[in-house]
Structure formats: C-alpha cells, structure tokens
Amino acid sequence: MARIVYFTIQADDVLRAADFYRNTFGWHIEKWGGEWGGTDEFYLIETGTEDDPALPGTLMKRPGKVDSQLLNAFMCGIESTAIDDDMAAVVANGGTLVSPKVTIPGVGWVAYCRDTEENFIELRQMDPEAA
C-alpha cells in the first residue's frame, strides 16, 4: 500500500508563509541550500520533534498563478490538541477561517482555514466523546 511520506506547501510569498506556519503551529522551517522546481526559495519543514516525529514537508515558491477560489490542491489536515486556540492563532497570524468548528460525532471537531497564501488547511481535534 502506498503511503504519504511528505507534503509540499506552495506560496506566493515564501517568507510570509514560513512565518505563518512557525508562529501558528510552531513548525521548524529552514532554507534548503539548493534549487528545486526552478526556484531557490525552497525550505524544509519539520512538524514534529525527535521524541515525537511527524510528517516532514517542504515550502516552495508557487510556480504559477492560482485561478480558482475552490480547492485545487491536495489538502492536508493538521492535528490539533486545542482547536479553538489554533483557529485563533490562524487569524492572529494572517490566515482566515473558512468555516466554523463543526462536530463530527464520535470523532471530534474540524474547522477549515486558509493560510496567508490562500492554501486550505483542515484543523482536526480528535475526541471520541464529541457529540
């Protein structure tokens, strides 16, 4: 079975996006010393720690214009332990809320947001007691 091993976030303003993800979710983001996909604006993302590893990612300059307000990409979800706090952090760091927090009975809560680059984010807080 194939599995996801990393993710890529594309951005019009890579430094603004890096600040958003660092400040909102505490991710470690550092510039990679080479070129990839025709740009040297390429960064490595660590979403976990050595003690609590998580999916690694990359952040790169968007290669073209986004022509749609609809989701036109592969959207990843971010696990939250405090979804209300994370929703507030998204807004405080320049992102926007797309939907209110919704309960999924027996699963938890989910909310959709956009980052500073108009990419969709799913925030999900797991809680089997949610009703």
Rank of each mutant, 00 (worst) to 15 (best):
A17M: 08
D115P: 09
A11M: 10
V107L: 12
W32T: 06
E35V: 12
L55M: 15
T81L: 02
T47S: 14
G95S: 10
D127P: 11
E122C: 14
A131R: 12
R62F: 06
V14S: 12
T96M: 12
I4Q: 13
A111S: 12
T81V: 06
V90G: 01
K61A: 12
I121G: 00
T24M: 12
D86S: 09
W27R: 02
I121V: 05
M75E: 13
C113S: 08
M126Y: 14
N119P: 08
P105V: 11
F120G: 04
V91M: 03
L15M: 14
D84L: 06
F42R: 00
G38A: 09
D85N: 03
T8F: 00
R3N: 03
E41G: 00
P53D: 07
M87G: 10
G26A: 08
A73S: 15
G108R: 05
E30W: 07
I9W: 01
V102G: 00
D84S: 09
L44A: 11
D51F: 02
E129Q: 08
N119T: 08
G106C: 01
A54E: 15
D51C: 00
Q69G: 10
G34V: 06
I45K: 05
V110T: 15
N23G: 03
E79C: 04
V98W: 04
E35D: 13
F20R: 01
W32M: 13
L123Q: 03
A73V: 09
T103R: 00
A54L: 14
D127A: 12
A131F: 05
G33Q: 07
R3P: 00
A82I: 00
Q125E: 15
A18K: 15
K61P: 02
L59E: 09
D85S: 04
D40H: 11
N23W: 04
G34Q: 06
L123H: 02
F20P: 01
Q125K: 08
G26W: 09
G38D: 12
G26Q: 08
A73R: 13
L59P: 07
G94D: 08
E46Q: 14
D40I: 07
R22M: 06
P128H: 11
T96R: 15
